[in-house]
Design a protein around this nucleic acid. Structure first.
Lengths: 215, 215
DNA sequence: AATTTTTTTAAACAATCGTTTGTTTTAAAA
DNA sequence: TTTTAAAACAAACGATTGTTTAAAAAAATT
């Protein structure tokens, strides 16, 4: 019953949140299990007990993020929105997830470029699960392309555009003297939506020869 | 005179390249000095001898990348290019740097979101050096904005857009069956240029109330 | 109330971490 | 040839890494 006020959540959840916070700040490899345990106010052994090791914590964090992304795709897909609306909804929903689960998103994104042996299978599996979503997304935006190369450029460009704020967050806070609040994230979502929509339209008219028609 | 054929470069350079390759793959914190030493074919102590420690290797890698970026800014600035040309030149030059110094760029970009104590001063210094460049760049693109928030959105968006390919490179290679060669990078530069230019123009017309006129 | 299961703990595990040490080798300068 | 400095080395440093163990506490079940 100790620390109920400070740590109302269950140990498992506390480990996950403490881990996410530290991973977001320093990166997965730079964080020790003892650091997580102390921040979560649990014994070190609890991490292996609940997550079968340090890697298990990161895996769950990444899975939770991808579940949110999948939910957004499902939502848009089921609503059968038009191209522009679909794009704006996608950006808005994703920014909303980012806003509410900032550290989970940041961890999932920033750890993606790395290739540690203990995650290679896991990441391949996650990637496999989302390939179809990305394809459907591009199709929805009437950007289905015969040339695979253009797809492989556009999809990562869109994602990293939406997440640019989080990739550069420490940098942004140092350089610009701004208050990051709900109003800021509204402007952020609008700006990114516009940039992406107009930019993709520009690509459509510039690369007509590479872009196949979809009904 | 041993291993001249295999390792023609000086030890210092070999350490730097081996370090960059490993950091790019696994992230700074996940790489040990012994790993670097073995890959560079030098004794472990040589890393501290030449770079005053593991952190020194990363610092030099990041500095080299930022020197390249600074050179691009200088080039564009001295040529007094028009808005559209300036943007396309910037993207082309940056993609060119990325193409030729892939691992150095990837390391500099992927390590940016993290905040390890041994680098906090260093990163603040690097950031300070480049604030003015970013401001000048936005001004050149006739996107000088009274509202600081819009600047803080656009600048990171542009950078992460250009580097999206490298952030998702392991992912891309898994998902799409494409050959990444010079031709690919040509298409990449063109696509990103178009996306960015048309996207920024969209922002200009959508946020007229926030964007100040510059002569 | 007795038993079983789950949760939590402190301690220890072997392995690896980055760095420093003192010495040897190599090369240049005198 | 002698001297001096730079480069490279093996070995060891103390500290920390992730994980496991076996015992204790707490909770749930019978």
């Amino acid at each position: 019953m100790r620390n109920v006020a400070q740590n109302p959540k269950e140990p498992r959840e506390r480990i996950l949140e403490a881990g996410a916070l530290l991973f977001a700040k320093k990166g997965y490899a730079a964080v020790s299990v003892r650091e997580i345990a102390e921040a979560a106010n649990v014994n070190v052994a609890m991490i292996s007990y609940y997550f079968a090791g340090k890697a298990g914590v990161l895996k769950e964090i990444i899975l939770r993020y991808f579940d949110d992304v999948q939910a957004i795709f499902d939502k848009i897909w089921s609503r059968k929105l038009r191209s522009e609306e679909a794009l704006k909804t996608f950006v808005n929903e994703l920014v909303d997830v980012m806003k509410n689960k900032t550290i989970f998103c940041k961890v999932a994104i920033t750890e993606m470029p790395f290739n540690l042996p203990e995650f290679s299978e896991f990441k391949a599996e996650v990637a496999r699960r989302h390939v179809e979503y990305i394809r459907q997304g591009l199709q929805l935006l009437k950007l289905f392309v015969e040339d695979e190369r253009l797809n492989s450029i556009i999809a990562p460009a869109a994602i990293s555009l939406i997440f640019s704020h989080f990739l550069f967050l420490p940098f942004i806070e140092k350089v610009w003297n701004i208050e990051i609040n709900d109003e800021y994230y509204d402007l952020y979502a609008k700006t990114i939506s516009t940039l992406l929509f107009d930019g993709l339209n520009g690509i459509k008219s510039s690369f007509k020869n590479l872009i196949g028609d979809v009904k």
